[in-house]
Nucleic acid binder design. Structure first.
Lengths: 142, 142
DNA sequence: GCTTATGTATATATCACAGATACATAAGCA
DNA sequence: TGCTTATGTATCTGTGATATATACATAAGC
């Protein structure tokens, strides 16, 4: 499954589990079992969430993770940005053919297009909170 | 530059060049020179545009490409779909941990999230026509 | 049938990614 | 103080998607 970026979905999975257990202490081993992948991969993902200020992790003998604020105050755009997933699409990087005005200008123009499309993507994410996801998990497991 | 998908930006580059030369006959060699990559790669991209009905290509001694309809009647979502670029993000595909309700339900829930975000992305693309891009190219080359 | 275009199949090189390992760091506790 | 057990991180490897290169099939004008 290499080469399809799953950073965002793994980060969201971790955050949802932390949200479902909000107030409790979770270990990275527990989270790795929930995602069902290796602890090293999960820890790398958690590390980004900690750096983004979404998760607090303590170290030492009784280390644990917990959300830094309530699930209702975290949205999916926060998680998306924290996960450092690559941009949805890249402009190609071929040299410019100076005799062609399309070639001369397309990179700048396409850059604007991609940035707009990315904004559309991000607006949808910003509208969904972690609390929404936790509620859905709980509703489905009844 | 492998592993970052540039299908969409290459397809848009080709379409913009065809739009700028709307009414004329363009060869794949000309288009390859504009994009500044290999003819085989460009031809593969054109082939998808032809299958999607956006471009007409004739073969034989005087083969050429042209848009099937005016640039104002083609939007970037048409091109995006034709380029067969992969989805912006994939859900991870790890096994389900049955003892965890987050793990049990996250795939379905996250599927909805990604589909919403994808829609936001696509709506922005649908709002931009090829004629817009051609106009920008012309404005910038003055 | 020669030329020159598009169309496509196949092989190769590269690169980002997940996965694995090893070890550093940190803090509670005996 | 040192043992234990947690997180943090650096590094290497295997894999797969991608762009690229090559070769050849197909098609149509002349």
């Amino acid at each position: 499954m290499a080469s399809t970026n799953v950073q965002f979905s793994v980060a969201t999975h971790i955050m949802t589990a932390l949200g479902d257990h909000y107030g409790e202490h979770c270990t990275s081993t527990f989270l790795a079992e929930s995602v069902h992948t290796t602890p090293s991969f999960v820890r790398k993902s958690i590390s980004k969430l900690v750096k983004a200020g979404l998760v607090i992790a303590t170290r030492g003998n009784v280390g644990y993770c917990l959300l830094s604020r309530p699930p209702a105050k975290i949205n999916l755009l926060d998680i998306y940005r924290a996960s450092e997933a690559p941009a949805t699409f890249e402009m190609h990087n071929y040299p410019v053919e100076k005799t062609c005005r399309t070639s001369t200008n397309i990179k700048k123009i396409m850059g604007n297009v991609l940035s707009k499309a990315q904004s559309g993507f991000e607006e949808e994410l910003a509208a969904i909170t972690l609390a929404d996801l936790v509620a859905q998990v709980r509703a489905r497991s009844k």
